[in-house]
Protein backbone atom coordinates (compact mmCIF):
# COMPACT_ATOMS: atom_id res chain seq x y z
CA UNK A 1 0.00 0.00 0.00
CA UNK A 2 1.15 3.53 -0.75
CA UNK A 3 0.93 6.16 1.94
CA UNK A 4 -0.55 9.66 1.51
CA UNK A 5 0.46 12.26 4.08
CA UNK A 6 -0.72 15.83 4.40
CA UNK A 7 1.01 19.04 5.38
CA UNK A 8 0.36 20.37 8.87
CA UNK A 9 -0.76 23.56 7.17
CA UNK A 10 -3.73 21.70 5.72
CA UNK A 11 -4.50 20.08 9.06
CA UNK A 12 -5.21 23.56 10.43
CA UNK A 13 -8.33 23.56 8.28
CA UNK A 14 -9.27 19.93 7.94
CA UNK A 15 -8.96 16.72 9.89
CA UNK A 16 -6.86 14.76 7.41
CA UNK A 17 -4.95 11.84 8.89
CA UNK A 18 -2.40 9.87 6.91
CA UNK A 19 -4.14 7.30 4.72
CA UNK A 20 -3.15 4.12 2.94
CA UNK A 21 -4.11 3.66 -0.71
CA UNK A 22 -3.75 1.00 -3.39
CA UNK A 23 -2.91 2.97 -6.50
CA UNK A 24 -0.70 2.98 -9.57
CA UNK A 25 -0.94 6.70 -10.35
CA UNK A 26 -0.94 9.88 -8.34
CA UNK A 27 -4.46 10.43 -9.58
CA UNK A 28 -5.70 7.17 -8.11
CA UNK A 29 -3.89 7.87 -4.86
CA UNK A 30 -5.35 11.35 -4.49
CA UNK A 31 -8.83 10.24 -5.44
CA UNK A 32 -8.75 7.36 -2.98
CA UNK A 33 -7.54 9.74 -0.30
CA UNK A 34 -10.43 12.05 -1.12
CA UNK A 35 -12.83 9.15 -0.65
CA UNK A 36 -11.37 8.45 2.77
CA UNK A 37 -11.16 12.03 4.05
CA UNK A 38 -14.40 13.98 4.03
CA UNK A 39 -14.06 17.42 2.48
CA UNK A 40 -10.51 16.87 1.24
CA UNK A 41 -11.18 17.20 -2.47
CA UNK A 42 -11.98 20.90 -2.48
CA UNK A 43 -8.80 21.69 -0.55
CA UNK A 44 -6.35 20.14 -2.96
CA UNK A 45 -8.18 19.92 -6.31
CA UNK A 46 -9.88 22.75 -8.17
CA UNK A 47 -13.34 22.80 -9.77
CA UNK A 48 -12.02 20.94 -12.83
CA UNK A 49 -10.18 18.24 -10.87
CA UNK A 50 -6.65 19.58 -11.40
CA UNK A 51 -4.24 20.21 -8.55
CA UNK A 52 -4.84 23.62 -7.03
CA UNK A 53 -2.39 26.22 -8.26
CA UNK A 54 -0.63 26.48 -4.93
CA UNK A 55 -0.73 22.84 -3.89
CA UNK A 56 2.09 20.46 -4.75
CA UNK A 57 2.19 16.67 -4.53
CA UNK A 58 5.47 14.81 -4.07
CA UNK A 59 5.84 11.12 -4.84
CA UNK A 60 8.93 9.62 -3.23
CA UNK A 61 10.50 13.05 -3.09
CA UNK A 62 9.69 14.20 -6.63
CA UNK A 63 7.00 16.72 -7.45
CA UNK A 64 4.38 15.33 -9.80
CA UNK A 65 4.76 16.56 -13.37
CA UNK A 66 1.20 16.18 -14.62
CA UNK A 67 -0.61 18.64 -12.38
CA UNK A 68 -3.82 18.40 -14.38
CA UNK A 69 -4.29 14.68 -15.00
CA UNK A 70 -2.02 13.47 -12.16
CA UNK A 71 -0.90 10.62 -14.39
CA UNK A 72 2.49 10.25 -12.68
CA UNK A 73 3.05 6.62 -11.77
CA UNK A 74 3.57 5.55 -8.20
CA UNK A 75 4.81 2.35 -6.58
CA UNK A 76 2.99 0.16 -4.15
CA UNK A 77 5.33 1.38 -1.45
CA UNK A 78 5.41 5.03 -2.45
CA UNK A 79 5.25 7.89 0.00
CA UNK A 80 2.96 10.61 -1.29
CA UNK A 81 3.09 14.03 0.34
CA UNK A 82 0.46 16.70 -0.22
CA UNK A 83 2.08 20.04 0.55
CA UNK A 84 1.45 23.75 0.19
CA UNK A 85 3.49 25.45 -2.51
CA UNK A 86 5.35 28.51 -1.29
CA UNK A 87 4.00 30.36 -4.31
CA UNK A 88 0.73 30.55 -2.40
CA UNK A 89 2.23 32.92 0.14
Amino acid sequence: MATVRFTENLRRHLDCPTVEVSASTARDAIHQACEQVAGLRGYILDDQGALRKHVVVFVDGRAVVDRVGLSDEIENTSEVYVMQALSGG
Binding site: N9, L10, H13, G39, G42, Y43, I44, D46, D47, Q48, R52, H54, V55, Q84, A85, G88, G89
Partner: peptide, 29 residues
Protein backbone atom coordinates in the same frame (compact mmCIF):
# COMPACT_ATOMS: atom_id res chain seq x y z
CA UNK B 1 -7.11 30.43 1.54
CA UNK B 2 -3.86 31.10 -0.23
CA UNK B 3 -3.09 27.44 -0.87
CA UNK B 4 -6.34 25.61 -0.47
CA UNK B 5 -8.85 27.78 -2.25
CA UNK B 6 -12.18 29.36 -1.47
CA UNK B 7 -14.11 28.10 1.54
CA UNK B 8 -17.47 29.08 2.98
CA UNK B 9 -18.35 28.91 6.66
CA UNK B 10 -21.61 29.55 8.51
CA UNK B 11 -22.39 30.37 12.14
CA UNK B 12 -25.69 30.44 13.95
CA UNK B 13 -24.29 31.61 17.30
CA UNK B 14 -22.78 35.00 16.47
CA UNK B 15 -19.45 33.59 15.40
CA UNK B 16 -18.74 31.55 18.52
CA UNK B 17 -18.64 28.43 16.38
CA UNK B 18 -18.46 27.97 12.64
CA UNK B 19 -19.21 25.09 10.32
CA UNK B 20 -17.77 24.72 6.86
CA UNK B 21 -20.57 24.47 4.30
CA UNK B 22 -20.62 23.79 0.60
CA UNK B 23 -18.53 26.01 -1.62
CA UNK B 24 -19.92 27.06 -4.99
CA UNK B 25 -18.33 24.86 -7.62
CA UNK B 26 -18.18 25.49 -11.35
CA UNK B 27 -19.35 22.61 -13.54
CA UNK B 28 -17.00 20.70 -15.77
CA UNK B 29 -15.82 22.91 -18.59
Amino acid sequence: LGHFGVKLHRSSDEGRTWSEIATPQYPEK
